[in-house]
Write a protein that binds this DNA or RNA. Sequence first.
DNA 1: TGCCATAGTTACCAGTTGGTAACTATTATG
DNA 2: CATAATAGTTACCAACTGGTAACTATGGCA
Lengths: 111, 111
Amino acid sequence: MPEQIAKKELPACPVETTLTLIGDKWKVLILRDLLPGTKRFGELKKSIGSVSQKVLTAQLRDMEKNALVNRKVYPEVPPRVEYSLTELGQSLKPILDAMWNWGEEYKARNI
Amino acid sequence: MPEQIAKKELPACPVETTLTLIGDKWKVLILRDLLPGTKRFGELKKSIGSVSQKVLTAQLRDMEKNALVNRKVYPEVPPRVEYSLTELGQSLKPILDAMWNWGEEYKARNI
DNA sequence: TGCCATAGTTACCAGTTGGTAACTATTATG
DNA sequence: CATAATAGTTACCAACTGGTAACTATGGCA
């Protein structure tokens, strides 16, 4: 059986599974900013606020590898690269929504 | 106005606000394991699976400071310390639920 | 008397993460 | 001819994170 495809080794607990994919501040922020729609690299960098190019690229590569994000390169000069969420990426919206709602209520209490 | 109480400096974005409180793998796992109910330190350590004493204590202290977790010490020997979620901590359940559901579906797809 | 148990704390060390700055390519513009 | 623009990559360094192991306290038990 030489063609055995390695199954991803996922944790038994579903919460941990989710954490392996987006258990990371940067990825959550990328999701937040891509959920409304496609963005260019530079736009994304600006909208996230304070992230270095290095880290942003690394996180995007990671999410691309995990099929959460699409990367589309336009062969222009200067280069244009557009990032968008895959369907799988979009399917994380309920988590982001829950985080949004909780944060809102938390801030409302603390005024 | 000497009694001005310092307002917590929270990010404008609610998602980021949530991240400042539980944007951390360990805290999510602690929430997961305390949502069903009170646990002693040792039980929590075991149920989380692979966390060192040092890290677990640090995270619990942090969550206690942020009023997510209650710490109750019983003056016995050997000492008994019980951890439970505050109401605020419990209110994070929808986020955990969303993460649970997503993880389940993700694993189902990848079988 | 000496050891066990629990819930820590601390010092030390290793690995990971993240920032900065310099470098890349290519074409349009002044 | 030099510069600007975009989306990177790379090297180097600092800071943060996390693990291990040794130490703490105290009462019960052999």
